[in-house]
Structures are given as structure tokens and as C-alpha cells.
Amino acid sequence: MVRETRLVVISPLSEITPDQITRKVHSLGYEVTVKETCYGAVLEGPPETVSKVMQELRALDPLGIYSKIRGFPLGDPKRCRAQHGSRPGFSQLQTEWQSLSLVEKGLECALRGDKAEDIDIPERIPVKDLQRFCEEVE
């Protein structure tokens, strides 16, 4: 059987809880496995079923629920934290999870039809100016 394992990640701004996600999955009655995690849930099952479940989950909070697939199957001892320390991707997931509140706000603007603005990134100051500042400090 071809499996798909998928991380469901709830944005820090969302009111949805991991428990609601798992209950929703159970209530759908599809043949997928779901496991609650600190950032949301992990789904596993045939790709088409996982995709259908994902659509339903996104509907709970379209801008608050994010997902990506995961390489290793659920509970794989090769990637178990107790055995190997954190998974290599875990710290990135942690950091990206924190940034989801920013992405959520960005999505709001994008879906509203806002246009991107050019942000000026200041250039490095000329060496002469730096020299002048140094002399002033002296």
C-alpha cells in the first residue's frame, strides 16, 4: 500500500486545538490513522484519503491550519526522539510553526487582494562616512 504521512500544524493564532483535529478526523470515519501532537496532528493513510481529510480539516480554519507531508511513517523507531534525539526536521518545524502567525496575516492580506510593497533595505554606509563617524566619536 502506498502511504502518505502528513503533518497537520495549527498556527499559534488559531483557536483550533489538536484534540479538535483528531476528533474531527475520527468523526469523518475515513480509514486513516491520526495521532495528536503538540503542534497539531499526524495523519497517515492512502494519499487520496489523506487528501480528502486534509480538505475537511482546512475548512475548520482555512488560514490557521497548515500541512506538509512527512518522509518517515508514524511511530518509526528510526526517527523516534527517545532513540535518536529530536528528528532533524523538528527544530525547523518549531521555528516555522512560530512564524505561521506571520504567514496567516500575510495570507489574509494576499487573499484580500493587497499588493506587495517594495521594502527598502538600507545599503551599507560608505567607508568615508564610517571614517567620519569614527573621528567624531574620537
Binding site: R81, H84, G85, S86, F90, S91, Q94, T95
Partner: peptide, 11 residues
Amino acid sequence: MVYPDVEASQI
């Protein structure tokens, strides 16, 4: 073999 677990915030 063991892999010391480290929080990302500690790096």
C-alpha cells in the same frame, strides 16, 4: 549510538 537531544532555542 545515542544522539544528545538539544532544543533549537539552545543552539
